[in-house]
Every structure is written in structure tokens, then in C-alpha cells.
Nucleic acid binder design. Structure first.
Lengths: 120, 120
DNA sequence: TTTCATACTATAGTTTATGATAGCACTATA
DNA sequence: TATAGTGCTATCATAAACTATAGTATGAAA
């Protein structure tokens, strides 16, 4: 016996899961800012700490580890003195380019919408 | 005196802000699941509560209010007995279609990547 | 009169995310 | 010997997000 409600429900779950999978990797206050800052080239820890407003060492360290585990960030230690650690986006991270681009466009639009609404 | 570091920094901030603007609207455990469930048609409160796994009444209520304030969800009260409240996506919410689509594609890919990695 | 369905809301508590502050190990330079 | 720069980590505190449980109001039906 076919029950459209259940079919639709399954379909709905099938859409939700990948989206939440994606958000799990990207969520939180800092992950996308970190990735975006690396789209402009590889950086050292202290450079990023300076460049990303208000981030603490603790969060930067933690999130970089997360991103590394998800294959989005590469960490290279140069045994210079003092030791320099270079972070960069992986090739895989560039599969996020579309995601970031659409989010960015939507964000710009949304802000415009509400700024214009204020004027009315 | 031109300082490339500062230019790049500004550029970087200019990318970050719209993305975080977007994520502010969409973040949290429930907002996208709610929107996605409404892409399959308008729903009543209790229908959504049943359809979205594990959501509590409190969160559903709260998030629907948030989404309504952001112009993404429309709420219509039918004065039948008992009272029925119908929720639906606004036209504006459909500007999220691309965002959801790219997130979804990325999520599917990411899961595939890690499932395949397990096999190796 | 009790129960059921509608759509919520209130209160309290737990869990997770983030912040503030400090300190470590290394070595060069003053 | 003291200080400074590198890249962190540890501890504790706070804030934000979420959960659990119960209760509200309406009116119909049993």
C-alpha cells in the first residue's frame, strides 16, 4: 500500500541529511572565516590570529585541528628557528568554493534586503 | 604608501562578513531542516513536529518565529476549530534554493569521500 | 465530566561552544 | 641573565544552544 506521506517524509530526510552533514563540518563561528582567510594564500598561525578579528589562540588552534581532520587544511612544519608552521587550503577544500560563493551571494543580498527595508 | 598585507586583509574581511551574515540566519541544528521540510509544501505545526526527527515543540516554535522574522517562513492562522496554523516558505525563501543545493551536493560528496576512505 | 486535538509557552536543567588568562618549550638576541 | 618571538596547550569561567517536562487555552466528542 503506497502512502505518499511516508514517501515524502523519506524524501525530506534524504534532503536534510547531506545538508546537516555539510553544516556539521562548517558550523561554528570560526571555520569559514579561517578557510576564507586561507583562500588568499598560505599563512602562519600568528598571521591568522592577527588577520581574523577577535579569534583567540585557543579557538584558532582547535578549529585548525578540526579542519585538518576533515581534510580541508594542510599543516606543514618548517624546522627553522624559531619553528614556523604553515597552514594552507587543501585541494579538497576548493570543492567548497561553490558553497562559499553561494553563501556569500546570499549574505550580500540578505543584508541589502534588510537595509532597504529600513529605508521604507 | 601601499601595503599589500592590509589590502588583502580588507579583502578577506569583505568575504567573511557576507558569509557569516548568511550563516547567522541559517545556523543551528534546526533551521535548514525546517526550511527543507517546507519545500515539500506547506505544513501544520504538528505535522512538522512529527516529520523532523527529534525536534522538540519548543525548538520548532522558536525557530519558526526566527525564520518568520527573517522573512523566510509565512504563518497563516485558519480560524477553524480546533485552530489550524499553516506554515509555508515565502518566495524570498526560494532565494535559498541555490545555497541549499550546493550545501547538499557538498554534503553528499563529503560523506562519499569519507566512506570510501574507510574502505582503503 | 473527562479526554482529545489543536498550537503552542514556561521553567528549569544540561550540554556544547566560546572566551579569558596564563604558561610551556625552544632559541636568538640584548 | 632577561626578554622576545615562534606555536601552541591547560585550566577555569561564561554564554549560547538545546532538551525535558509540564502546563495553557479552546472547544468538540465520549
Amino acid at each position: 500500500m503506497k502512502d505518499i506521506t511516508h514517501l515524502e517524509h523519506g524524501q525530506c530526510l534524504g534532503m536534510i541529511r547531506p545538508v546537516t552533514d555539510a553544516l556539521d563540518v562548517l558550523s561554528g563561528k570560526w571555520k569559514l572565516p579561517i578557510i576564507i582567510s586561507l583562500t588568499f594564500g598560505s599563512k602562519r598561525f600568528s598571521e591568522m590570529a592577527r588577520e581574523i578579528p577577535k579569534i583567540t589562540d585557543r579557538m584558532l588552534s582547535k578549529e585548525l585541528r578540526d579542519l585538518e581532520m576533515n581534510g580541508l587544511v594542510q599543516r606543514v612544519v618548517h624546522d627553522s628557528i624559531p619553528v614556523v608552521v604553515e597552514y594552507s587550503m587543501t585541494e579538497y577544500a576548493h570543492t567548497l568554493d561553490n558553497v562559499i560563493q553561494t553563501l556569500r551571494e546570499w549574505g550580500i543580498n540578505h543584508r541589502k534586503r534588510y537595509t532597504e527595508a529600513d529605508k521604507v
